[in-house]
Design a protein around this nucleic acid. Structure first.
Lengths: 239, 239
DNA sequence: AAGTGGTCTAGACCACGTG
DNA sequence: ACGTGGTCTAGACCACTTT
């Protein structure tokens, strides 16, 4: 049954993949225990874990703490150039969103933020830290830094919903020019901890710098996403 | 020296990271052999490889075939909404680009491409497959699918440079509306092989659908990037 | 209490890249 | 020919979750 020219863990990966399809496992369905798989495929846990790691990298399965391996749900399609809001984006695609505000405070702008935003170092700025989930699975940790000029008392509002909705409806603030950066980056430190994943897990980093219509600094945010949770879709018109 | 509350591989990772900084290792500098590191840190190769895997996931080091581990160069900053071209983008940032055209053919549009582009299934279409490098390191494999209407004889041109430059200068074709999708995805199969990385390595997938000014299908491309090689930067203007 | 994944050991052989 | 990373074994203990 085993072929010599293909690594065992790749063969295990392929058979596991085939088994998953045969069983028609749903989103969030649990896989058998690693030891069970090891004896089933006549190999060791180390090799099984290598195969599981492959499927994890491919976004087919994910791990949850020490509870086991599960089938990855479909990716959320997300357009960072718009302000539909997390809640609407998720519900429109048939998932159930939830948001926890981990902290919200008025801070003094650190030097790196002053450089980015053009504000003075030490200037007052709102900082909001939130964790968001899709179907009870944590998918992103988000830092928002908001220019308090134009939106006094923002922190007294409910920040578990869309901040952009608040800014638009309550304060009449709308985004103008926007600068977006996206790149793959491992989740480490506080972000990994907040998301309940191992430090070093694959992730996607996204940051947005948003100016208002007059070109003044409005908002800056940093988002740390689980690598398999989203698909970024952007529409651009060239002139 | 060892603490019980922190995993050994994390401690090895931290010490390695510290050592790298002390040595002031340059981009593409080589790390000591795994066995050497194992004895230096008084542990096994398995644990050392776990630490190396962490640094790899963080984009600090990368592996090259069976040659060893190297310091990752700086990320290339890349704006998929523009058409500056790979060559110009790379040289402007002080790196040395190179491109190999792996294949270029006139094919019949498969059904998936017909669905995306709106062309008829089986309609003629140019397919170009290229591999591109930064400072001799392969960073991306790119599939281009181009509507031959408006650019006859494109395949007779030199496709090692920018295709968008060709389309603009030789055929007066410029992009209008553009649809971009980006998400993390493991490199597997032919893409992994072409890039010389292990199947399952972390990567970034990017696709672009480009229409011309009149809304007709112009070009579609799929890019498979090494996860640590680029930073996507997009500018958006909301109205 | 039992089961799970997370970590770790101390070896081994192989395929491949480099001299 | 040699050194390298890539793969693999057969165990072990631990921290944590679930029952």
């Amino acid at each position: 049954m085993l072929r010599n020219d293909i690594p065992v863990y790749v063969q295990v990966r392929d058979q596991l993949w085939q088994w998953i399809q045969e069983q028609q496992l749903d989103s969030q369905a649990r896989l058998p225990a690693e030891r069970e798989l090891a004896s089933r495929f006549n190999t060791t846990r180390v090799t099984v874990r290598q195969a599981l790691g492959q499927l994890e990298a491919e976004g087919i399965i994910f791990r949850s703490n020490r509870r086991g391996w599960y089938i990855t749900p479909q990716r959320l399609i997300y357009d960072p150039s718009l302000d539909i809001g997390f809640y609407n984006t998720v519900t429109e695609q048939g998932f159930t969103p939830s948001t926890e505000t981990l902290s919200k405070r008025l801070i003094e702008a650190p030097s790196w933020l002053a450089d980015i935003s053009g504000m003075a170092e030490g200037a007052p700025i709102y900082h909001i830290l939130r964790r968001r989930s899709v179907d009870l699975r944590c998918v992103v940790v988000e830092h928002n830094y908001i220019n308090p000029r134009g939106c006094p008392g923002l922190l007294d509002q409910d920040t578990d919903l869309s901040i952009w909705l608040l800014l638009r409806e309550q304060y009449d603030l709308v985004p103008g020019k926007r600068n977006i950066e996206i790149f793959p980056q491992a989740l480490t430190g506080v972000e990994a901890e907040a998301l309940g994943v191992n430090s070093g897990s694959a992730g996607l980093y996204m940051q947005r710098l948003t100016l208002d219509k007059s070109g003044a600094f409005l908002e800056y945010d940093r988002e740390y996403w689980i690598h398999d949770a989203l698909k970024v879709a952007v529409q651009v018109n060239n002139n």
